[in-house]
């Protein structure tokens, strides 16, 4: 479960002495229940990416609290935050964020290496995961040798390999064609249904927003609408 309490954030831009403070999020509060797909929509500059980055722990909030599964992540130090991420969070990025010099297998295996899982277990789990996303035969291919859809599946496999209870997705279909997008959304729904994984997805795509059990619309750093999927 994710709980956001009175979250505010601002960016300071400009040179020293002529700095400008730009508020990005203004006193936001909401909850994502366990097993829920929550989508956050909004126009560019509305603060949705900043919100996801704050929940991910990539940036620190100016004010407010972020709780994930009973842990106040907004106060964790770098090392504890890294440890928290590897055990509780999976990430799907718009531009996949695969390491180009690693094969599909190595990219998926990476979180298990960071967790210190043994060689044998890693091989078995990675192969199972690649099979699950339908890419076992592509395991020795480098990202540049895969299509956009295949790369995003590798990215999802990497997110799923550590069995995270929560997956944070930043425009997951942003780099995909409509057919691949449909497949991916279906896959996300299956994962949510079969494994009970909680999803927090930010998007500006209505199709993506539609898979959410609830949707929040952000505008100018504030929640302007919160609705339940009918």
């Amino acid at each position: 479960m994710i709980t956001i309490n009175n979250l505010s954030h601002e960016f300071v831009i400009g040179k020293k002495g002529r700095q400008t403070i730009i508020p990005v999020l203004k006193n936001i509060s909401f909850k994502v229940e366990k097993g829920e797909i929550m989508t956050i929509v909004g126009r560019s500059g509305s603060g949705k990416s900043t919100l996801l980055n704050l929940v991910s722990g990539f940036i620190r909030p100016k004010d407010g609290e972020i709780w994930i599964n009973g842990t106040k992540v907004s106060e964790l130090n770098e090392a504890k935050l890294a440890d928290f991420r590897i055990h509780h969070l999976g990430f799907i990025f718009q531009s996949f964020q695969l390491i180009p010099s690693m094969t599909a297998f190595q990219n998926v295996e990476l979180p298990l290496i960071l967790k210190g899982v043994s060689d044998r277990e890693r091989k078995q789990q990675t192969e199972e995961m690649l099979e699950r996303v339908g890419l076992l035969e592509y395991q020795d291919h480098y990202p540049s040798e895969l299509s956009g859809g295949q790369q995003q599946r590798v990215s999802i496999a990497r997110a799923l390999i550590v069995n995270p209870p929560i997956i944070l997705a930043d425009e997951p279909t942003g780099s995909l064609d409509s057919e691949t997008e449909e497949d991916l959304l279906q896959f996300i729904k299956e994962l949510n249904r079969d494994l009970g994984i909680t999803f927090l997805i930010i998007t500006h795509d209505d199709k993506v927003a539609e898979i959410g059990h609830r949707t929040i619309e952000l505008s100018d750093g504030k929640i302007v609408e919160e609705g339940v999927l009918v």
């Binding site: 990539f58 890294a82 928290f84 960071l114």
Partner: peptide, 8 residues
């Protein structure tokens, strides 16, 4: 990428 997915 490594830091994002949880490298200490």
């Amino acid at each position: 990428i490594m830091k994002a997915i949880g490298a200490n």
